[in-house]
Write a protein that binds this DNA or RNA. Structure first.
Length: 471
DNA sequence: AGAAGAGAGATTTCGGTTTT
DNA sequence: AAAACCGAAATCTCTCTTCT
């Protein structure tokens, strides 16, 4: 154990992805050994933003439930699915060899045997998640039931009784759960450094890495000051990771062994336990070098002429602020009386001046959050039917326009969240800017614009055509 | 040469005992 | 009574050896 295989580190980093629900909920417990007769497991987890969720998983007698290292298979499947271009039917075809490689395992006979058992477990475990599965499209938490794998066909060397042997030429045809694939297609994913992930020696450290990376990703998105820090209640954290034991000293011991490799590789700088027993909280400080580089941000900057190396530096250091600065840049670029000789250099100068730009947008955002919070309070009483919620959105929008003018309306409908989504659906950044201006200048009614933007998300072809006609 | 087997070493999990 | 300490059983991993 210990040092990651050095040769991999020299090479390019394997850039993978993780589905956010899977990473946050961790519905496969880390525990490697579960009692044979344990076929139903119920636990509460708290998502990174505080949303509580109940997870019930059920196994089949004789096979047991998915656990521990089966998480690696799930990560591999998600990445195979994304690499395959996210087919709408959710079917991926891959080899047993590729799956083993992707989950960072060896490829000896024993590993193939382990893989077939692992597939059997994952295939036969059902999950029921209450109020914890985030529907990225509808923007709310939902209750879902599913199996990770819907169907599974495999070619195998030979069948000797009940034992099915996979080998390096086995081809697997797997249909992933629609809940998972739908979420991926909706873009509810985050980058995952597979090279780091695979270099971790234990199941626990790998699972914790993914979970902590979710927190890190959110801290970067919020634009927290560095170094990034994070604190959670010990027992909550244990539940989130899938450590089943409820005794604080046992939990702590389990966590310690997960932390060690993460500290060694520099992902975590420090881990502190504050308090005693059940009331202990765990405080993490991330390592300096762990800032994730968001490739989308890099691409965004490169597109505007910034040199790749420079772009990576700013993407690493500024996180989500990059989007804010580029938006500002696009805005400035369009001012008729402004002459910019070298757009790339101008963008870099804005990047250097990030603090004042972000301060400005942040004060706007705070105001917006305030509005939303007061409204949420009254909203709580209302039934959460989808149609009604849509209606509410419209109403909020109208209120925003009446009270605060079009600026507030724009803030409300063009959150950075939504801007990214729109881009993913094929809108160019300058077009989004046109949208913003059209509303600001009152050329287009905010409610109307909001409806069209939603259409873009629902059915891009029609929506974008309508939108372009309007601009 | 490659597969199978044996044995040492490390991990994980869990229960009993002492301490606060 | 809760929390921390300690240690042991069970199980897995890695390496070396043996057999076909």
């Amino acid at each position: 154990m210990g040092q990651p295989r050095g040769k991999d580190q020299e090479k390019d980093v394997l850039r993978g992805h993780d589905e956010r629900n899977v990473a946050a909920l961790n519905f496969i417990p880390v525990q490697e050994r579960l009692p044979e007769d344990l076929l139903r497991l119920e636990r509460m987890v708290i998502r990174t933003n505080g949303q509580p969720a109940k997870i019930v998983c059920t196994g089949v007698p004789g096979i047991g439930m998915a656990r521990g290292s089966d998480n690696d298979l799930l990560v591999a499947l998600i990445n195979v699915y994304i690499d395959a271009g996210c087919p709408a039917d959710g079917i991926i075809t891959t080899s047993a060899y590729a799956l083993l490689k992707l989950s960072g395992q060896g490829t000896s006979g024993k590993h193939y045997q382990a893989l077939s058992q692992c597939l059997a477990r994952v295939f036969n475990t059902t999950y029921h998640i209450t109020d914890g599965w985030f529907d990225f499209h509808a923007k709310r938490y939902t209750t879902v039931s599913f199996r990770i794998i819907d169907s599974l066909t495999r070619t195998h060397r030979e069948e000797t009784g009940a034992d099915i042997t996979l080998d390096s030429r086995s081809v697997l045809r797997i249909r992933l759960s629609e809940e998972i694939t739908k979420s991926i297609r909706n873009g509810y994913i985050k980058p995952l450094n597979l090279t780091d992930y695979q270099s971790l020696p234990t199941v626990g450290s790998r699972t914790l890495y993914r979970l902590l990376d979710m927190y890190l990703d959110e801290a970067a998105t919020r634009g927290d000051p560095k170094p990034y820090r994070m604190a959670v209640s010990l027992m909550t954290h244990a539940q989130n990771c899938g450590v089943l034991n409820r005794r604080p000293d046992h939990v702590r011991r389990a966590l310690d062994s997960m932390h060690e490799p993460l500290i060694k590789m520099g992902y975590l700088a420090t881990v502190n336990y504050v308090g005693k027993g059940l009331k202990t909280t765990v405080h993490y400080t991330y390592g300096e070098t762990t800032s994730p580089i968001n490739q989308e941000h890099v691409a965004l900057l490169v597109k505007h002429g910034v040199h790749r190396g420079v772009a990576e530096k700013y993407a690493r250091n500024l996180g989500e602020k990059v989007v804010v600065v580029v938006a500002k840049f696009a805005e400035e670029l369009k001012r008729p009386n402004k002459k910019i000789e070298n757009p790339a250099a101008y963008l870099v100068s804005l990047l250097k001046d990030v603090d004042s730009i972000v301060a400005q947008t942040r004060s706007d955002e705070l105001r917006k959050q305030d509005i939303q919070r007061t409204r949420k309070a009254s909203q709580a009483k209302i039934v959460k039917a989808e149609a009604q919620q849509n209606h509410l959105f419209e109403e909020e929008l109208h209120l925003a326009i009446q009270k605060e003018g079009p600026e507030a309306a724009v803030e409300f409908m063009l959150t950075s969240f939504k801007v990214r989504q729109l881009q993913r659906h094929g809108l160019e950044l300058h077009e989004i800017d046109q949208v913003r201006n059209a509303v600001l200048e009152r050329r287009v009614d905010a409610a109307q614009m909001h409806a069209i933007l939603n259409r873009v998300l629902m059915s891009p072809e029609v929506g974008i055509r309508d939108l372009r006609a309007l601009l």
